[in-house]
Design a protein around this nucleic acid. Structure first.
Length: 351
DNA sequence: AAAGCGTGGCA
DNA sequence: TTGCCAAGCTT
């Protein structure tokens, strides 16, 4: 029978963390003062549904460009969106700017979980994480790592997402009064390095003797999750309109998929290939032989590629920005468009 | 409250 | 190759 004594669990985990914490750019150095709330907030937003390795280069770039929340608040929308390009879930970037401006207006971040929760883009997890890590408050921090660790520790049979309330209560029961921020980060380090989704390394785990999942012999069976419905396949067309060495880019509407981002013009997505519907201008469009495939969270997309060239004097009334093809890297295109742009340039060069 | 919202890594 | 998964939030 495993020992689920909360204090023993917290103590074992914190001791492990003191010797095994990852050195991450947003963490305070051991023995240093509490980390800067701006850096904690920025990292937590970037880390929503996103792995550490993907975040690090973006975090470095953002903190170099905008060292303070006031600097970020003063940035242009388009610059921030372009800097976020490639990281995904672009509503985070729109909320990031709104939040920075709100915090700059107030003069500081709120220092309670409840106050933080009111900021744009800050939900239950992020508010708890910032309150605990940046402000030293006791907070119950539950992300996907914690869900996995706790559901194994207590062999939770309930199926997610229904099990969230129970897992929150169990996490509460093991969260210490002191160092709850370190405790949360320790849980996440444990979840990402040892208590992994597949093939957990139980023999290295500091909580092994407390773990009901390990005692039962099949810890990887937790957390139990409802089966996901299959992703639909959708189709579309992207348009490459070139004039004098520049390509036409548009800004996508603020709401919806890739909202607010620079993009190649597209037609609407459809359930079957839409061909040359909805071109951005009248031109002699040629469909390329190659298509581009991309997986989004909730559907897979197959896009046809259509290309045309305008002469120098044409296209005066076309809506959008003419972006130098040689400088397309700096446009900040989401990955699906960057992928298509590479394909366009390969194929058009080859002609 | 269920659905919409990116991307890259891994087996 | 395909499917699964990751430091969730918003409406």
């Amino acid at each position: 029978m495993p020992d689920n004594a909360p204090r023993a669990i917290a103590s074992a985990l914190l001791h492990w963390y003191d010797h095994n914490a990852r050195d991450l750019p947003w963490r305070a150095r051991p023995g240093a003062n509490a980390p800067d709330p701006y850096r904690v907030w920025l990292s937590e937003v970037m880390l929503q549904q996103t792995q550490v390795a993907s975040v690090i280069p973006y975090f470095d770039k953002f903190t170099r460009t905008w060292p303070t929340v006031e600097a970020l608040a003063a940035s242009e929308d388009a610059d921030l969106m372009a800097a976020w390009a490639g990281l995904g879930y672009y509503a985070r970037a729109r909320n990031l700017l709104a939040c920075a401006r709100e915090v700059a207006r107030r003069g500081a971040f709120p220092d309670t979980e409840q106050g933080l929760r009111e900021l744009p883009g800050v939900g239950g997890y992020t508010a708890a994480a910032i309150a605990a890590i940046a402000f030293g408050r006791r907070a119950v921090v539950v992300d996907a790592n914690v869900e996995r660790v706790v559901s194994r520790l207590f062999a939770v049979e309930d199926v997610l997402p229904g099990a969230k309330a129970k897992i929150y209560a169990l996490t509460d029961s093991v969260t210490p009064e002191l160092r709850s921020g370190d405790f949360a980060q320790a849980m996440m380090d444990l979840g990402s390095g040892i208590c992994t989704a597949r093939s957990p390394k139980c023999l290295l785990c500091p909580l092994r003797e407390h773990c009901a999942g390990f005692a039962g012999g099949t810890p990887e069976r937790y957390p139990r999750k409802a089966a996901k419905p299959p992703k639909p396949q959708r189709f579309g067309t992207m348009f490459w309109l070139e004039r004098d060495g520049a390509v036409l880019l548009v800004r996508r509407p603020d709401k919806g998929l890739l909202g607010g981002m620079r993009a190649l013009p597209t037609g609407a997505w459809a359930d079957s290939p839409p061909g040359l519907a909805d071109p951005p201008a009248k031109a002699e469009w040629k469909l390329l032989t190659e298509t581009v495939s991309h997986g989004f969270t909730h559907f897979n997309l197959d896009v046809a590629l259509a290309a045309a060239t305008l002469s120098s004097h044409a296209g005066a009334a076309v809506e959008g920005e003419w972006w130098p093809v040689a400088d397309l890297e700096s446009a900040g295109l989401p990955t699906v468009f960057a992928k298509a742009a590479r394909q366009f340039r390969r194929m058009l060069c080859a002609v």
